[in-house]
């Protein structure tokens, strides 16, 4: 339940942020590595809750639209499965009050 509360809390906070969303993802994961991953660090470390695991297939679902471009996921991923980059020029998060 606690984790669900946190997800809700993050979602509410993400609603305060302005984004210029690209139509394609800037975050790529190697799903083969994800299938073998037990820790699933990306699913709890990301401050924007970008990553979740599809229970049926075990694949990682990436909601790149919410990404805050902090880079935590790439460094924390124990399988080194995240090909991390910033969004293309002009796209992504736009902080005006931080």
């Amino acid at each position: 339940m606690k984790k669900e509360d946190n997800k809700k809390s993050i979602q509410d906070k993400l609603n305060t942020i302005k984004y210029n969303c690209d139509s394609k993802t800037h975050l790529k994961v190697e799903q083969k590595k994800c299938l073998k991953c037990r820790e699933k660090t990306c699913t709890f470390i990301c401050p924007a809750n970008v990553y979740s695991t599809d229970e049926e297939s075990g694949y990682t679902i990436v909601q790149y639209e919410n990404c805050l471009e902090c880079g935590a996921c790439k460094i924390a991923c124990p399988k080194d499965a995240i090909d991390w980059d910033y969004p293309d020029a002009g796209y992504g998060v736009i902080y005006k009050n931080s």
Binding site: D12, L14, T16, I17, L68, C70, Y95, K96, N97
Partner: peptide, 9 residues
């Protein structure tokens, strides 16, 4: 009231 949330390394 929260008007912006942000994160950084």
């Amino acid at each position: 009231r929260t008007i912006e949330y942000s994160a950084h390394l």
